[in-house]
Design a protein around this nucleic acid. Structure first.
Lengths: 197, 197, 197, 197
DNA sequence: GATGAATGAGCTTTCATTCAT
DNA sequence: AATGAATGAAAGCTCATTCAT
């Protein structure tokens, strides 16, 4: 049986770290815990990532690119702005369901432990692939006169805060229904919030 | 000079802990640090709170009550639902500015370190005073036919996610303008999102 | 039985550290080793010294003062320069015999691990009490016309290198006789090296 | 292009190790660091030297032979004892300047980390080529009635301690002048110390 | 001979918590 | 109630050495 490649090992570390970080938090997740989870020695972990922080930073970059790619695909589709909102909400919830660690990591590790990302991820540096695409979405909606022209961050906060909030509530088992059943009303709310009168 | 009462001592511990937790995070704040900040010994801290976690839990309860009281006052006022939205947004931003620890604690300690609150604050247990008042606000708006009748959590996620997101962005120095300049557009967005057509 | 005072504890840590550092070297001496040697927990060590390095620095300061005091006493005595040389050699060897750790620490920890002392002990900062007294000795000898007037460091290197070298050789069990039997010849050699012709 | 011989590989390892050990110290120099510096794998290093310690021991042997050869050449020259002292001092300082690693290794690795050389280099075992030549120098000086007849180690300690001390002071940037400017006075001091009256 | 991923013991340091006073 | 010295488990990280390839 051939040994897994170096790249495969790196992926398995990142997968395990994503899992633990998102569930237990950055500080409660220890390097020995990550190592044990994939049957690797602690020392060897450091052959792949020079520090716990660097591991966390690679993860957020990976996630931002993943989300950025998803939104880009939607931006490039021929949908109306109204339907793009639908598509973004659906995409976000689909990821939250299929690979919940991804969104949880974003919410509970990246947004919460800013000191960890201070060096190397200043401002939106590590999430720019994703923010950029949302900005494009918004500006195209404005140009198409489907959305009101307002400060981007007012729209951005609405989008991300709202979606993040819903996923958070679901993660806490607070929602009486599944995420999917909220999709329509959330899209509608966002659309009404942003659309031209 | 009379010795401070037990209750006063407890308040001063909580004030100091709130300050440190919100600024440094739960894990980077040590018990000796809290004690030193108020000229008390570590040992004595444990006469008031049986553990670091219990201190964190009492804090979120306190904050939930504070925010709950603020919203109750708005609920009990004779304003229209539209103006109540304005008032809630203004109140939230005012607190974020006047006592930023409060909102920061909510966003960066309570929402972020779920593992800390796992036992004892399941679901919305520790924030119910505040959630309850928002629920009342929403139901009255529906009854007055100013707001569409939808699942409460869809509205709740919008409200809290949006406001929390904006305060977060400001905390990261990402917003091009001050929070106050977003007040009007945010209220408007929320109102359009939730109002009857 | 009353507990030892904080100062006494600190002395016992320093004593034990001096012992181990001088015998095993700075790096081969671990904090757990120091702690175990005096029946104290590792954690508590850090209530007395903020780091292993700071412990090493306090030790060299202590030693430099001890040696400085000894030489000062000789400087202040009414002896001739010739006899002062005798006295300094005798004193150095006496300390090397009675508390060998002291001299060994100077030779094998302070002089050898300069990187440890880089911050806070630059140049001769941490050994100045001792160097200063030797400088006084030398200058008084020159003024009394018993010693040739030459660059101080040429004399200093002779003195310290020679004495240190002999103690080193003894520590390695290389000397065929005890240190004391070299005292006369060493004093004589030093005197002849430095005296006016 | 022919592959380097086994011997050539060994020399390149030793050169690199000497360089790093003398500059960074024994403990701060890691085996991977040595390997990387010469484009060799860690594993292969162990085909040439069974351990880090053995590498350090081979180095001191090499240096002792190098210094021994230098002194032998001086011993075999027709100079007077007085001039041989001059020549030895000059040689030592020349090496300290041309290949400082050599002397630094002797002072800061061999003399300083005795625990490393405890097994295998007891006493003068690993530096005997060099000590032997100095012994010959001294005995010939005595026989020629230029030097007083005293215990060899008293003279040895003077020579090595003094020269080592001066190089050390220079390494610490403590000397107000360059080493060369001390050459004459040092030779003179040594000669006066040892010569017949 | 050569590679370098892998090991695992051990390092310095931290900190919630306890308890004798 | 109050103190703060003491504990000890555990953290992040390092590195000499091994061994399958």
């Amino acid at each position: 049986m051939s040994r897994p490649t170096k790249e495969a090992r790196k992926v398995s570390i990142m997968t395990q770290a994503l899992h633990l970080f998102s569930r237990e938090g950055f500080y409660a997740t220890t390097m020995p815990l990550i190592a044990r989870g994939i049957g690797m020695s602690v020392g060897n972990l450091y052959n792949y990532f020079p520090s716990k922080e660097s591991l966390a930073k690679e993860l957020i970059l990976y996630i931002a690119e993943l989300l950025g790619d998803e939104i880009r695909a939607i931006n490039e589709s021929p949908l109306s702005t109204r339907d793009k909102i639908d598509a973004i909400v659906a995409m976000y919830f689909r990821i939250a369901q299929e690979q919940p660690q991804t969104i949880e990591y974003f919410l509970r590790v990246y947004l919460s432990n800013r000191e960890v990302f201070r060096n190397g991820c200043e401002g939106m540096l590590c999430v720019s692939p994703f923010v950029t695409e949302l900005m494009i979405f918004f500006e195209e909606g404005v140009r198409a006169q489907e959305l009101r022209n307002q400060d981007f961050f007012s729209a951005f906060g609405l989008f991300m805060g709202y979606l993040g909030g819903m996923v958070f509530l679901q993660g806490e088992n607070i929602l009486p229904h599944g995420l999917d059943e909220y999709r329509a009303s959330i899209s509608e709310n966002i659309y009404h919030a942003l659309k031209t009168h």
